[in-house]
């Protein structure tokens, strides 16, 4: 599966670097500092991060670092999702210099659900609707000033969003 970037000519400039980082993760043991071109740092589609199973691996593939819990990351999610196929989730932050927000669903087949690039001038707040396979933690990660901050909330799912 390859992504077509025809609609996004601006992304081409980083395609090479992106490919390099994918290769590095494949090798697994090279220091990340050599290849800082994690998807989160540019606007290329972070294919590799979306393929990771666990939330920890997805965050590593996306940002190359880990997040610390912070009460400055706010997440609004229902206690019980009315249907796992459509779970309204919104994330906002009171942190300064937010550059991205990502949302992960811990026990989905692939944890990373959505990544949002927040350019300067855009408010650090996003609302969307996600699928959840079962009751699990939803994790919000806010990137601010080059660091990662997170919060998590368990959402109960009674009808899974992956079933037929």
């Amino acid at each position: 599966m390859t992504t077509t970037h025809d609609g996004f000519p601006a992304t081409r400039r980083l395609m090479l670097k992106g490919a390099a980082s994918v290769a590095l993760i494949g090798l697994g043991n090279l220091p990340f500092s050599v290849a800082p071109a994690f998807a989160a740092a540019n606007d290329k589609y972070p294919e590799d991060a979306f393929k990771q199973k666990s939330d920890a691996d997805a965050v590593k593939a996306l940002y190359g670092k880990t997040a610390e819990p912070s009460d400055k990351v706010k997440m609004d999610a229902p206690e019980i999702a009315e249907n796992g196929a459509v779970v309204p989730i919104s994330v906002s932050s009171t942190l300064e210099n937010v550059t991205s927000i990502s949302i992960l669903v811990a026990e989905n087949p692939n944890a990373l659900a959505a990544f949002y690039l927040i350019p300067a001038g855009t408010l650090p707040s996003v609302a969307n609707r996600l699928k959840m396979a079962k009751t699990t933690n939803v994790i919000a990660i806010v990137e601010a000033g080059g660091k990662l901050y997170s919060t998590a909330k368990e959402v109960k799912v009674t009808v899974g969003g992956c079933g037929g």
Binding site: A114, Y116, V126
Partner: peptide
């Protein structure tokens, strides 16, 4: 990928996986 452009620059970019709901919805402010 979903992009929003105002006045010649991107104001919002979304990278989505298959866990985003059918007929997807998003809200943000700039």
């Amino acid at each position: 990928q979903l992009t929003f452009e105002h006045d010649g620059k991107n104001v919002f970019l979304a990278d989505w996986g298959p866990a985003v709901s059918k007929d997807p919805y998003v809200k943000f402010s700039f």
